[in-house]
Design a protein around this nucleic acid. Structure first.
Lengths: 369, 369
DNA sequence: TTGTAGGCGTTATCAG
DNA sequence: CTGATAACGCCTACAA
């Protein structure tokens, strides 16, 4: 392994100069700098991360804990975090807690003095436990607000309102909502948001003339909750065709897919004869399906924000030795313009899920996307 | 941060003793050990990874490079690697090369003296480049055999033979194969394996009496290659119903799903009226669909094997300082019994994809899974 | 069985 | 602008 000493010898300078040339090029003479750089090239020198970490107190690693790697739900979150971290010269270390609280605690403890910051998604830890960790280390949580701990939250409820309004404006009278999974608290909130927006048009700016129908004529059939599976969706097909619903909102795209398949079997076309909307766009994205109205959660952006929050804390809480890693391309990164509700005091960010409804420019055609 | 010194002071011993108590408990007196352990508990001490790495030359990190984190294809590979690594006291750091060769080269260089080993999946690097890295560091590649470099390969072709044989034994006369993606070399191999096994029954042990049909009567319609999308599959539905095929093998489950949907629309039931098989089980697993005969690739196992291969090299090429990290639960792990074709000399492993065909015990019903 | 001391590769302080 | 030199926290011969 080539070390700083090797480079120093090759360039005829001291190790201190080489170190400076590498981390703060503007602190050394141009001529010296060039000699050092040439020596580095010729020897193929790369930093030894361990030694650097020991000297600086920074590891250049960010840990991210997720409850599972089996589902692809957290994948875009990880991916987004990875991209942002990499841009800042950091590497991402993954922890799969497998949904086990003690496991998570153990693994995080193992990581604590190995990484510079911790990103927690779907953590099983108690608020208190997380707060404890956050005292040791910069921590950013996903979809979980804990006073005093940075967080990025994706607000989905609002997208369901948009969905409800869209379906109302399309002239639907009777729609169905397929909820799930059983026991979900967010599910209830989404359903209410959908129903309110669908039934009640008082919030609209348009004169009521455009909508001659009384709100009492609209209704939402509540189905489920059902399991997030293809077959569970299909099992509801008959019920829906008999009910006279002209649009269905399913909380999950596996359910929507199963439903669409069975509907096809029954001779009902999606979206021509029945509009189908889903609370996520996971399967659709993977399959490139364009039959649904979808709600997309900005997971990748959230991942990037988590890293931003962590890095922010890292630079705020100036450690004893405050030298930071040089950011390879900080200049090419804009300040986060797509980040609403940012409050610098509590470091909480809220991202909004968006309903991918067709633009209502042309009229009321039901073509989606 | 609590250090070894703190623990030593608390326990009234030297740092050397604490270090030994932690890494080689049997080298220290029972009484001393206990005092040290208590001090560790009370102080909540954890190793400083950087210092340990600097002293030992081992980082406890394994890097894994994948061409993308956008698709979930490599997810189980990562997950499998993560689990095995964790069991051996290692952490996994992810590199997303985004399919770019220069990017991959840069990122790997950055990782080289930060990790103990590198796992390469879908690498864009040349054989020579990979071999170069392998000289510096233990390397294990996925689905890519390079002389002198450890590798884990998943053999899929054979599963397509099984598929062909299964369909023949089920009595099908005419089946279709939907190939893709365009330009794939493995696609051709799979198709041939499928066709050979379907057409030709000479390899079977059963007396020919059970199969009164002449092999010349069976045929395979080759369709595609098509893009891996839902709509691409659907577009083939009419063609298939008109052809008289009674079974279809699609290389990808998105295609199969789209096909099934359109078939439903046309009044054709899967699998009752037409058997549908897919070259992967990605979507099916996520959706919990049981309509297809699937081919499953043991990605998680492959990931675990990659780690095994890397660790194996790590212990073989005894470094200057040969102390290894203690393996937290090596005893609980069996030697790899599910690993066929293992040759200790070249460190290449071959795993086999398996066709999830229904057990042929009862008869020839076409119920799948 | 335990303590002493040197070194791992880098950064940072402090003189020059 | 550059060069010694002391940490950083841990491991491990070598002694005791």
């Amino acid at each position: 392994m080539t070390t700083l000493d090797d480079v120093a010898a090759r360039a005829g300078v001291s190790t201190a100069t080489v170190s400076r040339a590498l981390t703060r090029p503007n602190m050394v003479a141009a001529a010296t700098l060039e000699r050092v750089q040439r020596a580095v090239q010729e020897l193929g020198y790369h930093h030894n991360a361990a030694a650097r970490a020991l000297a600086t107190g920074h590891t250049g690693l960010i840990g991210i804990a997720v409850p599972t790697l089996a589902s692809s739900y957290y994948l875009p979150l990880i991916s987004g975090a990875q991209a942002r971290a990499e841009a800042s010269g950091y590497e991402i270390v993954i922890v799969d807690s497998q949904g086990s609280e003690p496991r998570e605690a153990t693994l995080l403890a193992r990581l604590t003095n190995r990484v510079d910051a911790l990103l927690l998604a779907g953590s099983r830890l108690s608020d208190a436990a997380i707060r404890d960790i956050a005292e040791t280390l910069p921590v950013a949580t996903f979809n979980r607000a804990i006073p005093g701990v940075s967080a990025t939250v994706i607000e989905v409820t609002q997208a369901f309102s948009e969905l409800g309004r869209f379906l109302r404006e399309q002239g639907h009278q009777r729609i169905a909502y397929i909820g799930g999974p059983p026991g979900s608290a967010t599910d209830a909130r989404r359903m209410h948001a959908l129903r309110s927006a669908f039934i009640d048009d008082s919030g609209d700016h348009d004169p009521p003339a455009t909508s001659p129908l009384n709100s009492t004529q609209r209704s939402v059939d509540i189905l489920g909750p059902v399991a997030p599976s293809f077959s569970a969706g299909g099992d509801l097909a008959e019920q829906i065709t008999e009910s006279g619903d002209t649009a269905v909102v399913a909380y999950n795209s596996a359910v929507a897919l199963g439903l669409m398949h069975r509907l096809g079997t029954l001779g009902v076309r999606v979206p021509e004869e029945l509009v189908l909307a889903t609370g996520d766009d996971l399967v659709g994205r993977a399959l490139e399906i364009s039959h649904f109205v979808t709600v997309s959660q900005p997971m990748a952006e959230a991942g990037a924000h988590l890293v931003d929050l962590a890095l922010q804390q890292l630079s705020t809480s100036g450690s004893s030795r405050q030298s930071k890693f040089p950011d390879p391309d900080a200049a090419s990164r804009e300040s986060q313009p797509d980040c609403e509700d940012a409050t610098s005091t509590d470091l909480h960010f809220t991202l909004h899920a968006v309903a991918n409804v067709p633009s209502t420019g042309g009229g009321n055609e039901l073509v989606t996307r």
